[in-house]
């Protein structure tokens, strides 16, 4: 049987590599009984990145590899992952996806008809701009920032910036001509593959918000599988996403060096700088915690802050 897997990005990204890995492992695990055909660029949903998950939920698509931010229109609770300065490092991230917070999100997505097989990584979102190095919240004052969603609009307003929602296809020329001064995105997933360094001079890896990927299967499909096959799917998914996280973190680590070679100026914020950013964005954190639900956010903060 051939299953169709839909994901958001192009065919050279770590998303595609993770999806290909899953296809390869699943075919091996099941002795070729299940094959996966990967559709990049949200082709199955006509290019709409937000709709893939919902289509999977009602069984129109078999598998989906998407990021938490892209399913917030369907499951607003998933925004918890990207609360500003929720995470201080990768360990904190891994504790939540492996722990109660991850379980809770899996339960919520099951309610939308998607069984989450495993978590992957889109990465921490970092800020770039063409005006000046960003070392403190004051440096954000008045900068025209392209952002991708409502929470980031609030966060940018907290920092005194001037947020603007814009499609990605518009963003590159807008950055080039200076319609907007800056943008924020993960290094490995966007800033390098989308060549943002061509039109931006300064980057501050301020780790202000995180976005995980997940590999999900339509619940209808999942419920129809026997236990043995389920175990094979699970094994393939776990290994494929572990691999995706590994290559994504490598790409990010090497990414800053690469961006320097491309002429970007990197400002590595000190712990004091980060504390200042965190404090400045607290109002958004509180507002969105309330929106998401205090009990859910507590699951995240408990595990993120556990040592």
């Amino acid at each position: 049987e051939t299953l169709r897997l839909s994901h958001n990005t192009g065919d050279t990204t770590t998303w595609q590599q993770g999806a290909d890995k899953f296809a390869e492992l699943l075919a091996a695990e099941t002795g070729g009984e299940y094959e996966v055909r990967v559709f990049p660029n949200a082709q199955l949903s006509g290019g709409d990145q937000m709709k893939q998950a919902e289509m999977t939920g009602r069984g129109a698509i078999d598998l989906v590899l998407t990021s938490a931010i892209n399913v917030t229109p369907l499951a607003p609770e998933m925004a918890a992952f990207s609360l500003p300065y929720l995470y201080s490092d990768y360990d904190a991230v891994d504790r939540t996806t492996a722990g109660k917070a991850g379980d809770k999100m899996e339960e919520i997505m099951a309610g939308h008809g998607i069984h989450i097989l495993a978590w992957g990584e889109n990465g921490f979102r970092e800020v770039t701009n063409s005006k000046h190095p960003i070392t403190s919240p004051e440096d954000m004052q008045g900068l025209k920032m392209r952002v991708a969603g409502p929470m980031y609009i609030d966060v940018m307003n907290d920092l005194g910036a001037n947020p603007q929602q814009m499609q990605w296809t518009e963003t590159f020329p807008a950055l080039q001509q200076g319609v907007v001064d800056g943008q924020e995105n993960p290094i490995g997933a966007v800033i390098i593959p989308q060549r943002v360094y061509e039109v931006q001079k300064y980057i501050t890896p301020w780790h202000y918000s995180y976005d995980p990927l997940f590999l999900g299967i339509s619940k209808a499909k999942w419920d129809g599988l026997d236990d043995e096959t389920r175990a094979q799917f699970q094994k393939a998914a776990d290994e494929a996403m572990a691999y995706q996280i590994e290559i994504s973190r490598e790409a990010t680590a090497e990414g800053l060096e690469y961006l320097k070679e491309q002429g970007m100026e990197v400002y590595e914020p000190t712990p004091e700088d980060l504390a200042a950013f965190k404090e400045a964005t607290q109002p958004s954190f509180d507002k969105w915690s309330e929106e998401i639900g205090a009990d859910i956010v507590k699951l995240f903060t408990d595990e993120a802050n556990a040592q």
Binding site: E54, G57, R58, T72, P73, P76, H112, G149, P150
Partner: peptide, 17 residues
């Protein structure tokens, strides 16, 4: 009917899709 059933909301304004 799907959109009314699944409660999807718009991305920027959070309005019912």
């Amino acid at each position: 009917v799907n959109q009314m059933g699944n409660g999807m909301r718009s991305y920027a304004l959070g309005l019912p899709l």
